[in-house]
Design a binder for these strands. Structure first.
Length: 415
DNA sequence: TAAGAGTCAATAGG
DNA sequence: CCTATTGACTCTTA
């Protein structure tokens, strides 16, 4: 299926896919990167007169954008106009609904994004700047609906026979994205299984709360478990080794992201004016001892050693053991951060300009609200929101130290 | 090679 | 329908 479309910007029409991978040479029309740009009244970036630059070029020269403000605005516009993430994602960003949801809910700060990661934000910014953004999307929505209706009708009138007994067999379309129209690229798992039409999907492993808890506990002990530990965890929990490995990759990544968020909130303060304070963020469900707070709690940090689910024993101490437990108490803030990834950029330790206050926001109708809080004055003392994360972060530091310790040359220490 | 960054896509709730 | 979560996968990086 591919009726969808994408009306995307020009950009290369290579046989590849619409969303522009690279651009080697020259863009036909246009030029003029011009350093200067926006005049003081204009909100932001690139209003280049009107050039059809490829997005990547724009990403490359884009000034720092405030991802938090951008996502906030996008969410507002979408909800105000009843536009869904799916539509928005597929037609404007070239991403699927789940990715959009994630991006809008937890945007990483600009300086921690790779070039590729910045792309969606630049697209969002561009979209926000387009005066007709909403109408265009709404038009697409209409078109989709029309197509949908059409399809429904035809199938109804049709007497196709799909054998048997009146079951509605799942129809498989299985085609996933159309290469041509939709953006995207990255087809995941090729279904290279020829035959075997019988739906053998691959169940999508769903870890039980108990397994997650055990994994989280293990993470607190050792964010970077050795292969041996991984094997043990896998066998004890009855999971595939790869599942455990993936879990750790994902968990580390996601924990890291939450730290960024907390950092942002703490730094910028949230004081739009009225607004009762940031909504607090996720309340993590119930269940697990969970790391994220859950209403009060804790105090002493976990460590929880207790049998793994089904009752088992643990075995840690593999490797050299390290014991770390802490609770960095400082209320203050700056969790130690290590890693400033991405080459260039700065690692801004706490303090400063996490975001520029650009943003002029062109109104757009509704919205009360929004806008970025005054940058910040101070840090919010006493914010209790995280806790174990910091502890985990410390373990992280320890891990890196151990790693660094193996190197001779201090210059290679990446701290 | 392992870790990290980005995403996808199945799925669980509304 | 729509949104949020999350295991797994592809590409980069170092």
């Amino acid at each position: 299926e591919s009726p969808l479309s994408s009306a995307e910007e020009s950009v290369n029409g290579l046989p590849g896919d619409p969303l522009a991978p690279q651009s080697s040479g020259a863009k036909p029309p246009s030029e003029e990167p011009s350093g200067g740009e926006s005049q003081p009244g204009t909100p932001l970036p690139l209003p280049g007169p009107h050039s059809a630059l490829s997005i990547q070029e724009m990403v490359a020269m884009s000034p720092e954008l405030d991802t938090y403000v951008i996502t906030k605005k996008v969410k507002e516009v979408l909800t105000d106009n009843n536009l869904g993430q799916r539509l928005f994602g597929e037609s404007i960003l070239g991403l699927t609904q789940g990715s959009v949801s994630d991006l809008l809910a937890r945007p990483k700060p600009w300086h921690k994004l790779s070039l590729k990661g910045r792309e969606p934000f630049v697209r969002m910014q561009l979209w926000l700047q387009d005066p007709h953004s909403v109408e265009k999307l709404m038009d697409m929505k209409r078109l989709e609906k029309k197509a949908y209706m059409k399809r429904r009708l035809s199938s109804l009138s049709d007497a196709h026979s799909v054998d048997v007994g009146g079951a509605m067999g799942p129809d498989f379309l299985q085609g996933s994205q159309s290469p041509g129209g939709g953006p995207q690229q990255q087809q995941q798992q090729h279904h290279h299984h020829h035959h075997q039409q019988q739906h053998l999907k691959k169940p999508r492993v769903v870890l039980g709360p108990e397994e997650k808890e055990a994994l989280k506990r293990a993470y607190q002990q050792k964010p970077y478990p050795s292969p041996k530990t991984i094997e043990e965890l896998a066998s004890q929990l009855n999971l595939k080794t790869s599942t455990v490995i993936n879990w750790f990759h994902n968990y580390r990544s996601r924990i890291r992201r939450e730290l960024f968020i907390e950092e942002i909130q703490a730094a910028g303060g949230a004081r739009p004016g009225s607004e009762g304070g940031s909504p607090s963020l996720r309340g993590s469900k119930s269940g697990e001892g969970d790391s994220c707070d859950g209403t009060e709690s804790d105090g002493t940090v976990e460590a929880a050693r207790q049998g793994f689910g089904p009752g088992q024993e643990d075995q840690r101490g593999t490797d050299h053991d390290m014991e770390a437990e802490s609770e960095a108490g400082a209320s203050g803030s700056s969790p130690a951060r290590i890693e400033c990834s991405t080459p260039g950029s700065s690692c801004g330790p706490a303090g400063m300009g996490l975001f520029s206050l650009t943003e002029a926001s062109s109104s757009s109708g509704s919205g009360p609200s929004n806008n970025i809080p005054p940058s910040g004055p101070a840090r919010n003392p006493r914010d209790n929101t995280l806790r174990k994360k910091k502890a985990a972060n410390l373990n992280n530091i320890i891990h890196r130290l151990e790693k660094a310790a193996s190197k001779e040359d201090p210059s290679e220490w990446e701290f």
